[in-house]
């Protein structure tokens, strides 16, 4: 890889980075910040990255770590709901929803966002950004096999929850 140019090599990655950050922190302003920091950080390190195989994969890795750091910071300021013993929200649509029927996509987004971070990120990289298993493995710092197994679990889980809503919810 020759010298990295900001406009042609880094800036076009902004949307991918933004979506990944958004997937992890679920906050548009925060995600924008993370994207900006990722680009600046990679740009400042460009001299050390001459022999990098994929700038894209490297950027996504940096972005994920930054997003996870931010999220950890925020989570430490809030009590985690995951640890609480609470009754699941009543996912059954109220009569108005049923009448309008617009909450369908919203429901699916919820399913998606309820996945553990790792699975969510994998689905993001594979199904939304369309990356190859090898690239995803590089970003997540794991093997291709592990990536496939995790994606399989994530999809199965989405399918189950989705079919549960489809079969009984409505």
């Amino acid at each position: 890889m020759p010298t990295i140019d900001f406009r042609t090599d880094l800036l076009p990655l902004k949307n991918k980075l933004y979506r990944l950050a958004l997937r992890i922190v679920a906050d548009t302003v925060e995600a924008e910040d993370i994207t900006e920091d990722t680009l600046i950080r990679v740009w400042q390190k460009r001299d050390e990255l001459q022999d990098l195989r994929s700038v894209e994969a490297y950027c996504l890795t940096v972005c994920r770590h930054l997003a996870l750091d931010r999220k950890a910071l925020h989570d430490s300021q809030n009590a985690s709901l995951d640890d609480l013993d609470y009754d699941a929200a009543d996912a059954a649509p109220n009569p108005l929803d049923r009448l309008v029927g617009t909450d369908h996509l919203e429901r699916i987004r919820e399913i998606f966002n309820r996945l553990p971070e790792r699975q969510r990120t994998l689905i993001q990289l594979r199904d939304i950004e369309g990356l190859r298993h090898s690239q995803i493995a590089e970003i997540m710092g794991t093997t291709e096999e592990a990536v496939k197994v995790s994606i399989c679990r994530a999809r199965q889980r989405m399918r189950q929850e989705f079919e549960a809503i489809e079969n009984y919810g409505l």
Partner: peptide, 20 residues
Amino acid sequence: AQLDAEAAHELDSRFDERVL
């Protein structure tokens, strides 16, 4: 359709200006 919709989140040119 939801996966497609998720791919539509994008940053505008104001972001470009700020970063540049």
